[in-house]
């Protein structure tokens, strides 16, 4: 019964709302302040993005999106996403599998390392790769003798993107897999499943919503990363600009409506991410509710 505090608490509370609740005028005021705050801080900026994007007409909007530099920025962004996301998905699963299913020394150290990109300013995240691969570093000098350029080129963008986005899948999967014990996987093994079949038929279906959401976050962040990529990209128009960098370049040239037009693409990605979060949470709540119901029956 101790595993069910939130649902029971909520039921009780709704039932007793008259007993320990605020008067109507206070409730209304608090809700009004919240809505007003959210309107000013979150909604107004969102509205302004679209308003400015279409300020000079649909044609200008369309031209900004179909501009060759925009197209190349989209390409660079997609390339970074296409490399960073799969690598980070594999990492996320590998890290979650070893951390939640096995005991070994140094586990907490690994968990803290996964948090590093969260703790570090994006500017510093970019900087470490300049220090590592820049022209005056040993590695950078060695690579340049082979004509390989990392910093201020595409490889640098991909590496920086991978760095800032690598924790997302792992961070989603670890709590999900921690709550599911290994018993279902062990059951699959006793029934004769090979490791691959166990993963495919038992592990994957159980983590799919966490994996889905973690991957969405990872991809959204890979598309939208600004600071770290800004440091390593070198801002070469039409070559090493990602979408957010392109927005900055266009904005700094005072082509406001064009900048906001490109920004609407990024806002769309953000809204899709929020939608994905709601879907994943909804699916998972359903599942946990069922498990709770199950646990309840067993207690009774």
């Amino acid at each position: 019964m101790t595993t069910l505090p939130s649902t029971t608490a909520r039921t009780i509370r709704t039932a007793s709302i008259g007993g320990a609740s605020e008067p109507f005028w206070l409730r209304a005021t608090l809700i009004a302040i919240s809505l007003g705050f959210i309107f000013i801080v979150l909604l107004l900026p969102l509205y302004v993005v679209f308003q400015t994007a279409f300020r000079d007409g649909v044609r200008t909007y369309w031209n900004a999106l179909t501009d060759t530099d925009t197209a190349s920025a989209i390409q660079v962004t997609l390339l970074a996403v296409a490399i960073a996301v799969p690598l980070n998905m594999i990492f996320g699963f590998a890290a979650a599998w070893s951390i939640t299913r096995f005991e070994f020394r140094g586990k907490r150290f690994i968990v803290s390392l996964i948090d590093v990109p969260f703790a570090v300013s994006p500017v510093i995240s970019g900087m470490i790769f300049i220090l590592m691969f820049g022209a005056d570093s040993v590695l950078g000098a060695w690579l340049s003798t082979y004509g390989i350029k990392v910093v201020f080129a595409l490889p640098g963008i991909v590496i920086a993107t991978t760095f800032v986005t690598f924790p997302f899948v792992a961070r989603e999967l670890i709590p999900v897999m921690q709550t599911q014990s290994a018993e279902q996987e062990l059951a699959a093994l006793t029934l004769g499943a090979s490791p691959w079949r166990m993963f495919q038929l038992v592990t994957l279906p159980n983590i799919k919503w966490g994996l889905f959401y973690g991957t969405t976050l990872c991809a959204a962040r890979a598309v939208g990363e600004f600071g770290a990529v800004s440091v390593v990209s070198g801002h070469i128009r039409g070559e090493t600009n990602t979408l957010p960098l392109h927005v900055e370049v266009v904005y700094n040239e005072y082509h406001f409506s064009a900048a906001f037009a490109v920004a609407t693409l990024l806002v769309a990605v953000a809204l899709i991410t929020l939608g994905a979060k709601s879907v994943a949470e909804w699916m998972e709540t359903n599942k946990t509710l069922e498990q709770k119901k199950w646990a309840m029956e067993e207690v009774q």
């Binding site: 018993e183 279902q184 062990l186 059951a187 699959a188 038929l201 279906p205 159980n206 069922e290 498990q291």
Partner: peptide, 8 residues
């Protein structure tokens, strides 16, 4: 298994 470990 004690708690059955059925594939949910």
């Amino acid at each position: 298994f004690q708690h059955y470990a059925l594939f949910q």
